[in-house]
């Protein structure tokens, strides 16, 4: 994935309108780009070619369904640990060795390691977190999601 900014003129106002509008949803119709384009005053062809271009330059990473892995039966939990600086690399190795650790970030805080556990079941979360506590001798704080407030992200039009 591109990690550097595009030049400021890389996106025109149409590109920006598309990025904003298509975060809201997309029709389940045989010709969805025609319907979505109509709302943006774009032809089907034009919307598709803009999206292809946005994907090619890396302004968007993908276009399609966002699956809720929890609704599919998986379990997830954000976890945090306060890892002593001198043990940090060793603890990274122990934590990352678990396949259930989906991602892991070092953060600027006393709780300096934040990772997400992804398991098939809620029991799995407790089992892996307990195991990491045993292996590291450190407490794994658990922050399961109680409620999500999603709206999205907007680029200046």
């Amino acid at each position: 994935m591109r990690r550097t900014p595009l030049p400021p003129d890389a996106l025109d106002s149409t590109d920006r309108a598309i990025i904003n509008a298509l975060q809201e949803g997309f029709p389940l119709l045989p010709r969805p780009f025609a319907a979505a384009g109509a709302a943006l005053n774009l032809s089907e062809d034009s919307l598709i070619s803009h999206l292809r271009h946005l994907r090619e330059i890396g302004a968007i990473t993908r276009f399609g369904p966002f699956f809720d892995a929890e609704a599919m039966g998986g379990a997830f939990c954000l976890c945090a640990m306060a890892v002593p600086e001198e043990r940090f690399d060793a603890v990274v190795t122990l934590v990352n060795a678990h396949a259930e650790v989906a991602h892991n970030y070092e953060r600027s805080h006393r709780l300096n390691m934040w990772f997400v556990l992804a398991c098939e079941t809620p029991d799995g979360i407790a089992r892996v977190a307990d195991r990491i506590e045993q292996e590291t001798g450190l407490t794994v704080l658990r922050f399961p999601k109680l409620k999500e407030f999603f709206i999205g992200f907007r680029v200046a039009a």
């Binding site: 990690r3 598309i18 990025i19 389940l28 699956f67 609704a71």
Partner: peptide, 29 residues
């Protein structure tokens, strides 16, 4: 395909059908 995607949207298995912006590319470093 349309019917199945619609059911997954209704049940929440699909949260939404949308574009995923790349924050870094869009200058949000």
């Amino acid at each position: 395909v349309i019917t199945r995607l619609g059911k997954m949207l209704d049940s929440g298995i699909i949260r939404r059908i949308a574009v995923a912006p790349n924050h870094y590319a869009l200058g949000m470093m």
